[in-house]
């Protein structure tokens, strides 16, 4: 079985990831638990119950959290 790669943009940077990668996989690689991040897929808010959706080549994902600010 061959797993092909696809290229997505994660937080502004291109990443090669295996096909079938989900937002949940990306969140798991971050340092924060899923309840401390919010996610955008292709500039639209992605609710937590959609994190298991497989990504497509060219998808743009933003994973954000809170930082200090005024």
């Amino acid at each position: 079985m061959t797993t092909s790669n696809m290229t997505i943009k994660l937080n502004g940077t291109p990443h090669d990831v295996p096909e079938g990668t989900t937002v949940a996989d990306l969140v798991a690689q971050s340092n924060l638990s899923p309840d401390k991040v919010a996610v955008e897929l292709n500039r639209r808010l992605l609710k937590t119950d959609k994190y298991a959706t497989p990504l497509k080549d060219g998808d743009e994902v933003e994973i954000v959290t809170f930082v200090g600010g005024g």
Partner: peptide, 15 residues
């Protein structure tokens, strides 16, 4: 607070 990209490699991992 402000909303910013999560740094995927944060040495301290503090939120």
């Amino acid at each position: 607070v402000a909303v910013r990209r999560e740094r995927l490699i944060d040495q301290q991992g503090r939120s």
